[in-house]
Write a protein that binds this DNA or RNA. Structure first.
Lengths: 209, 209
DNA sequence: TTGGAAACTTAACAGTGTTAAGTATATTTG
DNA sequence: CAAATATACTTAACACTGTTAAGTTTCCAA
């Protein structure tokens, strides 16, 4: 069945082309400049063809959103070589902030925009796997830190949510320009790391007698 | 000069009507369902008339955004009767979360959407006054807590940013449904307050010997 | 060779923000 | 009082958006 195989290949190829074109537009021109017509123009197909490969625009955005998680994972390569959970937690936070400010468009899609989550609503089997995995790693690190008596004890779920929320808060307020009028532009990033460091020092048991 | 006065009055009246109509649409149908044409329909004027009273759509959204801060201030009435800065900080956090989950549309406009800030860019004199004031009150409370040795000392700016970012993180992740797939729906709010409590207990000096 | 399925396009619907140009209405001026 | 001007508002259009029903072309199997 070489023919149907080749057909299948061509189909996945065009799917890839659509995603690549979306990605190109997304990275170069930002979220709100990705339109079905622009994508179609870029790959020399009619706009309606896009709908033969993706349910709707949200479906495309969801796929880009997944690519964002892949990109974020790249930032965290070698993270698990760090055996000290406190140091690892530090690095996790730093990487999170670095990723966010370096790829605001992706961060937007992954954690701010409503769009891709509506796509997830429709696909019952997916439970925001990417986000779940990332949070799971945070939880594990915090649990480990508590077990080894390196950080103050507390409900692992609550502490994880608190820490994630704080770094997300920093990144999202920065991306959406809520610090701009309060802090000089070049002081935003230092302030963010300072805030992160403060939190991690506060829960650091090794700094206290 | 009774005539020009009356004219002036009529102008501000129509301005109010436009804002009221926008508000109605905004509260009843959500952010993305506010359109110039719908506003115009509601007040029985042509869409172009709206542009005689507001520069563009962002200008209208900025005004709604300001109303959001007013609404938030209502939540914090009587806050300054609380003399204990630690208790006040607690209440501030609680109110912030309560406001966010009760008025997600307003919260969106005030702290998540990009739109109203672009309007601020254009108006040089305004330095996001509303946001600045709110953060100032947080800073004052934290400074007071540190001075009275009720909370652990640290850089006031960094600590304020950290705490604000955390509650913003909680609210914005909740509004944008990032907790939905990780926590049962009715457990989201308790988890948020738990996370807040954890942070405030961690910096509370009165709980330690 | 022909029938039918698969792949793709055309044309349209219903909506968006925004603006140039035109029309009444009301006020001021000669 | 009549003509000129300024104010308030509308019509009609432009250039977009996501999406879909219907039509066309291409390709493969019987």
């Amino acid at each position: 069945m070489g023919i149907t195989e080749r057909k299948e290949k061509q189909k996945t190829e065009l799917r890839r082309m659509i995603l690549d074109a979306s990605m190109k537009l997304f990275v170069e021109q930002g979220f709100e400049n990705v339109s079905i017509r622009k994508i179609a123009d870029l790959i020399d197909y009619s706009p309606t063809t896009v709908y033969l490969y993706f349910k709707d625009k949200d479906d495309i955005l969801f796929n880009l959103h997944e690519l964002g998680f892949q990109k974020m994972a790249e930032y965290n390569e070698g993270l698990w070589d760090i055996k000290n959970p406190l140091l690892r937690l530090h690095k996790m936070g730093e990487n999170y902030i670095k990723f966010g400010v370096s790829h605001p468009e992706f961060y937007d899609l992954m954690f701010i925009q409503r769009a891709p989550m509506q796509s997830i609503e429709k696909m019952v089997d997916c439970e925001w796997k990417s986000g779940d995995v990332a949070l799971g790693r945070l939880k594990d690190t915090i649990r480990e830190g508590m077990d080894k008596e390196l950080i103050v004890k507390g409900d692992v779920d609550a502490v994880s949510m608190a820490i994630w929320s704080m770094v997300h808060g920093l990144v999202s307020l920065s991306i959406r320009d809520r610090f701009n009028k309060l802090v000089p532009p070049d002081a935003v990033l230092p302030m963010m790391t300072q805030a992160l460091n403060w939190l991690l020092e506060t829960i650091d048991l090794t700094l206290k007698p």
